[in-house]
């Protein structure tokens, strides 16, 4: 049997064409942060000339892409550094493909983009559509874990985060992914409801701080919303499979994200938000709008290098939780 092509992705993209074409998605972020020595991967990129003061993820993505057959980078809707990443890889003779979530959020444009993926990988739109049902079934498993988290606290925050964030590439194992989710549920089956504590929502890109969710739990708070991770699982129930990539909030204008967060803050009875931002990322600017538009206390946490939470961040986190516990 021919070896399946391994397709590196820079963030969540429509996975249907990959699954229809029997290609293996490899989320390079997960590959980077889950590697044995992510700091080494950053250094490798810096040795190749990546600047020290640029987003760590981009450097990690670069190094983590070494053994994939093709890199699909999202050049609009995620991170503009990705364009330079793709051009760098291309200049080194690596196959790359730019994908864009359209600025105008139009169906025509997203269909064009998805057709582009189908053409690239060698499948038809019909075949992609056929793959969509099973894909959403899998994503819905992660969404059900998210429900258990915020409704009952009967799944740990860390496991909920991992379940949601892994929907971007199904751990490069679409067949075995459901089994992984069953393991999470099995592991948590005896988890009794924890003390309520302050209920926090995590907004922003997935964290580079490796122990952030256990740290939050250890500080006496409960994370009950994982904004972008949940979006990776395409929670929108409206429309068809293509429509889900238009309802997906993360790559489009911030008003959609604000609306989604506002709804979930109310539904999940959230007391405060943690806005995670990556050093040197343009999304740090979003903080202004979140603070203006969301009527709930916000603590902004910045991460740069992968690793456990530093003492300074912990002090800020504990102070925030303390203030929320005291009712402001």
């Amino acid at each position: 049997m021919a070896r399946k092509r391994r397709i590196g992705i820079s963030t969540t993209i429509p996975l249907e064409p990959l699954l229809a074409a029997s290609a293996v998605p490899v989320d390079l972020n997960n590959r980077f942060i889950g590697s044995e020595n992510p700091i080494q991967l950053i250094e490798e990129a810096q040795v190749r000339g990546f600047p020290r003061n640029i987003c760590t993820w981009i450097k990690g993505l670069y190094s983590a892409s070494a053994d994939v057959d093709l890199v699909i980078g999202v050049v609009r809707g995620d991170c503009s550094n990705t364009q330079s990443l793709l051009e760098t890889l291309e200049s080194e003779g690596r196959p790359v493909h730019p994908f864009s979530y359209p600025y105008d959020r139009s169906r025509e444009a997203i269909v064009d983009e998805i057709e582009g993926l189908c053409g690239l990988l060698g499948c038809t739109m019909d075949e992609a559509e056929q793959a969509s049902g099973r894909l959403q079934e899998l994503r819905n498993i992660a969404l059900s874990i998210d429900e258990r988290r915020w409704r009952e606290l009967s799944v740990s925050a860390e496991d909920c985060h991992l379940a949601l964030v892994s929907t971007s590439d199904l751990c490069s194992d679409a067949e075995g992914w459901e089994g992984r989710m069953s393991s999470i549920l099995e592991k948590n089956k005896d988890t009794s409801s924890q003390d309520e504590g302050v209920r926090l929502g995590y907004i922003g890109v997935p964290p580079i701080i490796t122990d952030i969710f256990p740290r939050i739990e250890g500080s006496g708070a409960r994370t009950v919303l994982f904004e972008v991770q949940r979006q990776f699982a395409m929670p929108s129930k409206r429309g068809d499979w293509i429509g889900r990539y238009l309802d997906y909030t993360y790559p489009y204008d911030i008003s959609g994200r604000v609306e989604d967060i506002r709804t979930e803050v109310k539904r999940r009875r959230i007391d405060g938000l943690l806005h995670y931002v990556q050093s040197f990322c343009h999304r740090q600017i979003d903080d202004i709008i979140f603070r203006r538009e969301l009527d709930v206390p916000i603590l902004t946490l910045e991460g740069n290098l992968p690793g456990p939470m530093d003492e300074r961040t912990l002090i800020r986190l504990e102070s925030f939780i303390d203030v929320l516990e005291e009712g402001g």
């Binding site: 050093s279 206390p297 910045e302 740069n304 300074r312 961040t313 002090i315 800020r316 102070s319 203030v323 005291e326 402001g328």
Partner: peptide
Amino acid sequence: QDFKVVRVEKKGIRDFHMNDK
């Protein structure tokens, strides 16, 4: 090695900032 700014109103903490990084 740090500085903090805390807004206190009616003896309650309304908001705070600490230097980071």
